[in-house]
């Protein structure tokens, strides 16, 4: 039987790379994102019958419960969750806009918590010893000018993940964070050439973090080989931190 994983932010970047790797590993991928990218459509075609997709706007947190009930009702077992979708909010703390801050917290914190709630309920229903991954950020540890709010949202998810690990460990449900360094994705597209050079110089491996390495770590943490790992933050940052 193919196991089912729910991935948020599946249309591009790390979410897409995770979907590709998990499909190759025999997982059935249920993906959500705001819009359906050409890359996701091509991947879905290449793995016909093994993917499903829904358009979810994670800022609309009041719709998540109904969205999960429609996409993954309790009658259908879910074995894993990758809380990947996130938005960056790059600004000085003195310039914080309440509306932008609340929108970011909705997508980066409230939505993944509500999705986790639904997935754990599903796992309990089917006695699934599942695995949950939250994608964090190296900025939680290093701190960075302009990323205080974003890093705080990721730090919240790291604390949430540790709590989930303790709370649901007795039922065999695991929760871990994968902490990527700076990857070449849409989220970091706004970095200047100077900033990229500085990041490369600071990293032990003298390069940015490759998306595939992060996706492989996600795949490992979802699989049975990592069955004793829970409540951890696994840093994949080319030696940046």
């Amino acid at each position: 039987m193919h196991k089912t994983v729910l991935i948020t932010g599946v249309s591009r970047g790390l979410g897409l790379a995770c979907a590709r790797r998990l499909l190759e590993g025999g997982w059935r991928v249920c993906g959500v994102s705001r819009s359906e990218s050409a890359e996701w459509s091509a991947l879905a075609r290449a793995h016909a019958g093994m993917t499903e997709w829904r358009s979810w706007d994670l800022e609309r947190t009041e719709r998540i419960e109904a969205g999960v009930q429609e996409f993954l009702p309790l009658t259908r077992p879910v074995h894993a969750l990758v809380n990947n979708a996130a938005v960056a909010y790059d600004d000085l703390a003195t310039n914080v806009s309440l509306a932008r801050l609340e929108a970011m917290l909705a997508v980066n914190v409230v939505a993944p918590m509500m999705i986790t709630r639904a997935v754990i309920r599903n796992m309990l229903c089917h006695e699934v010893r599942g695995s949950i991954i939250h994608i964090s950020s190296v900025s939680v540890r290093s701190g960075a000018r302009g990323l205080a709010m974003y890093a705080a949202s990721k730090g919240a998810m790291e604390a949430f993940s540790r709590g989930i690990a303790q709370e649901w460990g007795p039922r065999g449900i695991r929760s871990n964070c994968v902490v990527p360094g700076y990857m070449e994705t849409e989220m970091t597209a706004g970095l200047t050439a100077d900033q990229r050079t500085r990041i490369r110089r600071q990293a032990a491996l003298r390069r940015e973090t490759d998306v595939e390495s992060v996706a492989a770590t996600v795949g490992f943490l979802l699989g049975d080989e990592s069955s004793a790992i829970t409540g951890q933050e696994i840093v994949v940052d080319a030696g940046l931190s």
Binding site: L74, T75, L124, E167, W168, P170, R171
Partner: peptide
């Protein structure tokens, strides 16, 4: 509390 959570979702299903 964990049993109650499981009981709740089984009832819901």
């Amino acid at each position: 509390s964990l049993d109650l959570a499981e009981f709740t979702v089984r009832i819901e299903q």
